[in-house]
């Protein structure tokens, strides 16, 4: 097990390198000159050259990448020109907000998705199955940004139960309770699509498992049905469900872009959208790299969890 974990960690290194390379290349491909983009109407030839030199853009591409890589490895993502602040500071501030939002959404979607999946599989073709299957289909088809707007209309504007935007109240905000109140709507909205996906895949994984011989054998032992379902069948289905959870974690992290925009949640997503409209390239780069690295780590954990659960996979 320890060797497997080590091996997986080592295998992540080239993925991370490739990932940074892709981000770097995409950014290097930007049509036009970043210096001109940054300077706007101040783009005299002299200024452009100065910026290019300070960004290292006068060097060959490969060298530029290595310089950039060694910089970001030391935590230097450059300075955001639109905020006039180190990119890393800004990104880390924002990322904690995103982590709270997507972490909460991930908890919600894995819990509900898995429960609905098991529930519907156990009652196949019953009316609960039909209703929840339709609900799951609705979940994967609904535009989350629209759902967020509807939620604001219903719960903030009409019922006045929950705040519509931000992470804390502007006046007298702060504290856990305030945060939770602000978190409920965006986290729920963000979790809906992923819940639908997880529920559908859990259902089909469970149906596949429930037809296998060891389930009949478990029943022949005289086990109560809840033990057969939640222990025997679900344990076997988890092997398929865990990678799905890993992918959905990425979906929740990325989908936060919409939800943060709708609810004005001060996370990386909102930051990225603003940075794109201001063409603040270093900020975009930094935000994307951090979120992508986090996603790679989540999938690494999913891999390790799957391996730990399934002793048959020996590598």
């Amino acid at each position: 097990m320890r060797r497997y974990v080590l091996k997986r960690f080592l295998a992540v290194v080239p993925v991370l390198l490739g990932l940074t390379l892709i981000v770097f290349l995409i950014m290097a491909l930007i049509p036009g000159d970043p210096a001109t983009a940054i300077l706007g109407s101040y783009a005299t030839a002299e200024n452009v050259e100065k910026i290019n030199r300070s960004l290292g853009l006068d060097k060959p591409l490969a060298q530029q990448y290595l310089i950039w890589l060694s910089n970001i490895l030391q935590g230097d993502f450059g300075r955001s020109y639109s905020l006039n602040r180190p990119v890393l500071d800004e990104v880390l501030d924002r990322f904690s907000a995103t982590l709270i939002l997507s972490g909460a959404a991930f908890l919600l979607c894995s819990l509900w998705g898995v429960l609905i999946g098991i529930w519907t599989a156990a009652r196949q073709y019953g009316w609960t199955d039909r209703i929840l299957t339709v609900a799951a289909l609705t979940g994967i088809s609904v535009p989350s940004f629209w759902l967020g707007l509807l939620a604001i209309l219903a719960f903030s504007v009409h019922l006045r139960w929950l705040p519509a935007s931000g992470m804390f109240a502007v006046y007298g905000g702060g504290g856990m309770v305030d945060l939770l109140k602000h978190l409920i709507l965006p986290a729920t909205t963000l979790s809906v699509v992923a819940t639908g996906v997880i529920a559908r895949l859990t259902r089909s994984a469970m149906l596949e498992i429930l037809r296998q011989d060891f389930i009949c054998a478990a029943r022949a032992k005289g086990l109560p049905e809840h033990r057969v379902l939640y222990l025997h069948a679900f344990k076997a289905a988890l092997v398929t469900v865990i990678p799905v959870l890993g992918v959905q974690a990425g979906f929740v992290l990325g989908g936060a872009v919409y939800i943060e925009t709708v609810f004005q949640w001060p996370g990386v997503g909102l930051m990225l959208v603003q940075a794109i409209s201001k063409r603040d390239i270093l900020l975009i780069q930094g935000g994307v790299v951090i979120v992508a690295v986090c996603y790679v780590m989540i999938n690494l954990m999913a891999d390790i969890a799957q391996h730990w659960l399934d002793p048959r996979v020996k590598t």
Binding site: G250, L253, G254, A292
Partner: peptide, 13 residues
Amino acid sequence: AFPYILLALTIVA
């Protein structure tokens, strides 16, 4: 290795 939406966003950027 990228979350889908993030990659799309980067490309549009």
